Amino acid sequence: MFADAPIHGHRANAPGAAGPGIFTCVDSNGKRLSADRPISECIDREQRVLSGSGTTKRIVGPTLSIAEREAREAREREAALVRQRAQEATRQSRVLLSRYPDKATHDVSRQEALAATQSVIDAANARISELVQERRSLDDELEFYRKDPSRAPATLRRRLESNSESVQQQNQAIADQRAERARINARYDAELERLQQLWLAK
């Protein structure tokens, strides 16, 4: 099989050639080479390792440069990430279907999440109503010092400041909860879009 092929070290049919195997390849000039070790002329291409009977024992890929090896490793890492993302997406889809087998279940969950924020808004509005009543009473007291507000007692001024700060805090709480409601609706809308696809695929 190798009678006409140049041999690096010894001929393919020489004694001892059946040991680790015979490396064979076709170089860049189209010439078939054989040797008892990896062939340097074929470092950039595939080499076959043959047994003494001439059958292929294994195939050795091309030896890559540092840049080529880094590029291959980068491709392998990216492919692994793609597989990992696909597996995670599949897992999340299973969890989503298990949690929300139908639209009614999803709607109930949305309303429960929104109800929690609405209770905070309602409590804040109730507190603001109390603070408005309190402010009217404080303003009535301040009326006695209308001509010279600087003469108002320090306790009255502190209560006025505290009332204003409390109103601001309650308004901020309402704004925060409204923003949270928007986030909740956006999340449930995105889930519903995905679920509708999953329900159809069942």
Rank of each mutant, 00 (worst) to 15 (best):
T63S: 05
A179D: 14
A74R: 00
L195A: 02
G21H: 06
V60P: 00
R85V: 09
E73W: 00
T105Q: 08
R32F: 11
I7P: 13
R85C: 14
A126N: 15
R181H: 08
L33M: 09
A123V: 08
S28F: 08
D148R: 04
G54L: 02
E41R: 04
S137A: 12
H10C: 13
Q168R: 07
S65M: 01
S40L: 10
S162D: 07
S98T: 05
Q172R: 12
D44W: 01
R127Q: 02
A80D: 14
Q197V: 02
S119H: 14
P6H: 13
R85F: 06
A113R: 12
A173L: 09
Q169I: 08
S137G: 15
L200Y: 08
I66V: 07
N29W: 13
A154G: 05
A154Y: 08
H8Q: 13
I184F: 00
A74Q: 10
A3L: 14
D27K: 00
E161A: 03
A3V: 15
R83E: 05
P15I: 01
R159K: 01
E130N: 15
R32V: 09
A14Y: 10
H10P: 06
V108H: 08
A116D: 06
K202Q: 04
E143T: 03
R77V: 04
V120G: 10
D107V: 11
K103D: 13
Q133A: 11
P62H: 08
A182P: 08
S34Y: 09
G21I: 01
Q118D: 03
L114R: 03
R158E: 12
A74N: 01
Q111H: 06
Q196L: 05
R181I: 06
V60F: 00
D102F: 12
G16Q: 11
E41P: 01
R146E: 14
G52I: 03
R69G: 13
R181N: 07
D139V: 07
E180R: 05
Q47D: 07
A71M: 05
I66F: 04
P149H: 09
N13Q: 15
L160S: 07
S51E: 15
R69W: 04
N125F: 05
R91M: 04
I184C: 06
V120F: 11
P62Q: 15
V95H: 03
K147V: 08
S137D: 14
R91L: 09
P6W: 12
Q168N: 12
T105S: 07
R48F: 10
A154K: 15
G16V: 11
L81W: 01
E141A: 15
Q172Y: 00
I128E: 09
R99D: 06
D139I: 08
E88F: 07
E180L: 04
A124R: 05
R48I: 13
E193M: 02
A123N: 13
W199C: 02
Q84T: 09
S166R: 06
